[in-house]
Every structure is written in structure tokens, then in C-alpha cells.
Design a protein around this nucleic acid. Sequence first.
DNA 1: TTATCATATGATAAGTTTATCATTTAAATG
DNA 2: CATTTAAATGATAAACTTATCATATGATAA
Lengths: 108, 108
Amino acid sequence: MKETPYKLFFRAVSNKTRCDIVSLLMKGPKSVTQLCRKLGFEQSRVSHNLKCLEMCGFVSGKYEGKSRVYSLTPEVMQVLNAIDRHLVKYHEHLKSCGALENHMKAKR
Amino acid sequence: MKETPYKLFFRAVSNKTRCDIVSLLMKGPKSVTQLCRKLGFEQSRVSHNLKCLEMCGFVSGKYEGKSRVYSLTPEVMQVLNAIDRHLVKYHEHLKSCGALENHMKAKR
DNA sequence: TTATCATATGATAAGTTTATCATTTAAATG
DNA sequence: CATTTAAATGATAAACTTATCATATGATAA
């Protein structure tokens, strides 16, 4: 499958772990440990997903003492804010959508 | 996994088939057959994915004669345009990102 | 330099998503 | 209402993604 920028962009935040990480980082930079604590996720889970977000340009990390502190890149902040503004109106539509969980599969 | 509106929104367009469908529809409404022809995808593939997009409020379809014509919802058009404007600048970053294809897996 | 705490990486099993094939339903028209 | 063309649905195997566990690397300070 060929990768379009669109797809890559969307996919980066199309799962709950990364979505949650991004949401938290929108409130400010955090170390891996801080993210783990706040989200209740395992460390390697967070690190793996941070790597993915980093490679997609969503976040960047720099060492501060022993810990590595991650922040959203300015570009992505702008994008997310733009989406946010529009998602406010759109919200309702999505809430009633079970599609991605239920379609294309029967009663497995 | 609990579903956030964010995740649902992003996931809807996080695969190539749906991304392509949405891109095409940005240029105007199309029937299923037209989408199949232009994209070179199988009919059931397109229909399944349209259903997903429809349930997420991305598209809506109405019968015109024997065919069913799909269009993007106005709300989503706005969102996509907003993302588009920002993605222009961001583009470069994403192009160099192999993360979602390569990380978390070895040499399988 | 080694001990300690923080993060990253690798392998893998479990879970999810996808495309495909086969079949069914829908609309229109003779 | 039978036929034809268009689209939707269901089941399933293959592909992909994810979380987890085990381990390795990094940074600092004693």
C-alpha cells in the first residue's frame, strides 16, 4: 500500500494510546514516566508509541537529566487546534458511530 | 478500548482505500461504480468502505436511478480543508516517516 | 566505574482490520 | 413480474497493528 501524507498523518493518531498521549501533550511537555503515570499505561507501550509519533513529526523529545521530555511540535499543535475547532460541531455525528468497531465483522 | 471522537474521526481516514475515496469525493459526488472505475478497486471493497465512511458521517449517499451517488458531508469538507491548509506546510515531515510501516515489527 | 533510575528496543502472541469471494437486496425498465 | 444493472452484505483468510514481556542502552551521581 502506497502511503499518502494524509494517511500517515491520520493514522498516527488513529489509536487510543497515541491519541491519549497527544491529548496529554497538548497540555504541555511530559516525560515518559509522567505520561505513564497519568495515562496508566506501561512504559514500553508509551515508548513504542512515542517513537511512532516522533517519526511522524508529531512530537519531539529531549533529555533533561535522566528523563526524556516530549512535546508536540508547533506544526502539529496548529493542525490539532484547527481540527479541534471543527470537531466541536462535528462531535455528535461521531459519537453515534459504531462503524469502525462493528462493520465488516459479524459476530466473531 | 473506549472510543474518543478524535480516534473515530482519524481512524475513518487512516487507511488508503478510504483516504482515496474521500480525496476523490472532494472533487465532487460519485456513484459507487464511478469510484470503482477511477480508483481501480473492487466494488465490494468500495461499498464496505463507503459504509464505514457513511457511519462516521464523512459521506452520505442517495439513489439516483439505479446507482447510489455519494458525497462528502459539508462538515467534513470544512474539516478536510482546514487540515489541508496546514498539511501543506507539514508535508515534508510526513514524507520521511516510515514509522507506521516499520516500527514495532522486525524483519517478518 | 558501577549502581540506579529512565527510556528504548526486540520478539512474539493476541487482537484488529482488510480485501476478497459469494450471495443478496435494490431500482428501474421492458 | 422477470430481467438487468448497481450496490450492499456476510464470511473468512490474510495482513497488519498492538500490547506485553524481557532485555538493552542512556544518563547521572556516588
